[in-house]
Write a protein that binds this DNA or RNA. Structure first.
Length: 238
DNA sequence: TCATTAATCGATA
DNA sequence: TATCGATTAATGA
C-alpha cells in the first residue's frame, strides 16, 4: 500500500493536501497555495533520519504520509523513542519551543513523505496565517503532556502497566481499525516497545505473549493488534 | 519483580 | 542462506 514509483520529483502539490490539516484548516485556498509553493517535498525510506538532535534547525517539517519516531539519547547514551508522530502533523518545530537547534532526532518508521520549509519562514507563518500558531501550540502542548505522563509512569508504575499504557497510546495515536481489533499502523518490534517503556526486549515479549494467550492482543512480526482495548485499560491501571 | 544471558526457532530478504 | 526478530528457560540482583 505504500509502494511508490521512484521518481525524481513528486507531482505538483495540490492544495487539498493541507486543507484538512489542523495547522492550515482555517486558511484560504490562495494562502495554502503560497505555502505550498514555498515548500519542498521529499520522500524518505523507512529508517531514514530527517534531522538529528542538536543539529541547527534550518527547516521545519510537515509529515504528509508515513510515521516518524522521535528519538532522544538518555544520559547513559542509549537511544530511546520519545514518541511517535502520525501523518498530518508538524515536526522539527524548534522555533515553537524557542530553540534554534532540534530538540530530538526524527527517524522515519515507515516510508514517509515530508514537506519542509526554511525556518526563516516560521515567523511569517505565525503572524500572517491565523490559526497556524494556535493549532501548532496545541499539538506542542499535547506532546509535552504525553512525554511528561510517560516520565511519571516510569517512576510510579510497574512494568506491566507501563507497557499496557504505551500500547494504548500507540493505538490512540496511530491505530487503524481492522476486523477483530485495532492494529498499530506501522512496523513496531518488541525492541521498540521495550524502549518506549524502559524495560527489556524480553520482558516486553513475555508480556505480549501472555496477553496474546488471554486474547487481549494479537501480534505477528513487527505488527501488533489490540483486540480488547478495555482489558488493556484494566491492565494499565493495575 | 525484573534484568541478563544464552539457546533456539521461525520469518524475511 | 544469512540475518533479524521472537520466544523461552535459567539465573541472579
Amino acid at each position: 500500500m505504500n509502494q511508490e514509483a521512484p521518481r525524481k520529483t513528486l507531482p505538483r502539490l495540490d492544495e487539498s493536501l493541507l486543507t484538512h490539516l489542523p495547522p492550515f484548516s482555517q486558511l484560504e485556498r490562495h494562502q495554502i497555495r503560497t505555502i505550498l509553493d514555498q515548500a519542498s517535498s521529499r520522500r524518505y525510506a523507512a529508517g531514514a533520519h530527517i534531522f538529528d538532535e542538536a543539529d541547527p534547525a534550518d527547516r521545519f517539517f510537515m509529515l504528509l504520509d508515513g510515521y516518524v519516531r522521535v528519538m532522544r539519547v538518555t544520559s547513559t547514551g542509549e537511544q530511546v523513542t520519545a514518541l511517535h508522530i502520525p501523518s498530518g502533523q508538524l515536526l522539527g518545530i524548534a522555533k515553537a519551543l524557542g530553540r534554534d537547534t532540534y530538540p530530538a532526532t526524527a527517524v522515519t518508521a515507515t516510508e514517509s513523505i515530508v514537506l519542509s520549509w526554511p525556518t526563516r519562514l516560521w515567523d511569517t507563518f505565525v503572524t500572517e496565517y491565523s490559526g497556524f500558531a494556535t493549532e501548532t501550540y496545541k499539538t506542542v502542548g499535547h506532546r509535552v503532556g504525553e512525554m511528561n505522563n510517560r516520565v511519571v509512569e516510569m517512576a510510579t508504575q510497574q512494568v506491566e502497566q507501563r507497557v499496557a499504557n504505551a500500547l494504548l497510546r500507540l493505538v490512540n495515536q496511530t491505530g487503524r481499525k481492522v476486523d477483530g481489533g485495532i492494529e498499530i499502523d506501522f512496523p513496531i518490534t518488541r525492541q521498540d516497545l521495550s524502549e518506549l517503556t524502559a524495560t527489556t526486549l524480553h520482558t516486553a515479549s513475555r508480556l505480549l505473549s501472555g496477553w496474546e494467550k488471554l486474547g487481549v492482543v494479537e501480534s505477528k512480526r513487527k505488527r501488533i493488534k489490540v483486540c480488547d482495548p478495555h482489558a488493556l485499560v484494566l491492565l494499565s491501571q493495575g
